[in-house]
């Protein structure tokens, strides 16, 4: 990322934040899609595995949303001259996304584990996902200073930048999926331990 991709003609070297900022956002979207899927499956057949996957993916999604927000803020300082713009729809929608899943995890931590908490969590995970397309398309729906979606489109980038972006996106997405898998295994261990204590 640092050596292979050329420096941006306008933004200079700081543009290279893009190669982790955007893939982190893609990984967060994917994780929140798993929370949505887990919630739908849980409401359909009350599968504890689906609930475990939703819990695991929500945490991983929150970590990647944090990385997205902080890296974007560090990029904004030299480019926009400020760390944060409160009226910008993309920034605020992403912050709301962070709050929705932080709230989801807080609720899961506080609530007594069981059917009711899992059902409520599934509903929050399904409704909360509405903010994912809102965040993604906020740059086309409303006036914003955030770079548009076309910035990352294949035709908009020279080949070296496109290859760097593609490799980085695939690597970050795979890493996020590995983390969800590992967290899922931990949730399974925790559930078995809780069952053993209850017996």
């Amino acid at each position: 990322m640092v050596f292979y991709a050329p420096d941006d003609a306008v933004q200079g070297v700081v543009q290279k934040i893009f190669y982790l900022h955007v893939p982190a956002a893609i990984a967060a979207y994917a994780a929140f899609a798993l929370v949505l899927a887990g919630g739908l499956v849980y409401l359909w057949n009350e599968s504890p595995a689906a609930d475990r996957m939703a819990r695991a993916a929500a945490e991983v999604g929150l970590v990647f949303t944090t990385v997205t927000l902080v890296m974007g803020s560090i990029w904004a300082k030299p480019i926009w001259g400020t760390w944060w713009v409160w009226w910008d729809p993309r920034l605020v929608a992403t912050l709301v996304l962070w709050m929705v899943y932080a709230g989801y995890l807080l609720m899961r931590r506080i609530a007594t584990p069981g059917r009711q908490a899992a059902r409520f969590g599934a509903v929050v995970g399904i409704i909360g996902f509405i903010d994912v397309p809102v965040t993604h398309f906020s740059v086309t729906w409303w006036r914003t200073i955030h770079p548009p979606l076309e910035t990352a489109a294949p035709g908009a980038l020279p080949p070296e930048m496109l290859v760097t972006f593609a490799v980085s996106s695939i690597a970050v997405l795979l890493f996020a999926l590995v983390l969800v898998g590992y967290r899922y295994r931990l949730e399974g261990l925790r559930d078995r331990l809780a069952e053993a204590i209850d017996r």
């Binding site: 640092v2 970590v63 990385v67 902080v70 890296m71 560090i74 890493f175």
Partner: peptide, 18 residues
């Protein structure tokens, strides 16, 4: 350059810490 290093360092710390 310091902004780029700061951003990458944060990502490394956050993901490594997790």
């Amino acid at each position: 350059m310091s902004y780029l290093l700061g951003a990458y360092a944060f990502a490394l710390l956050a993901l490594g810490g997790y």
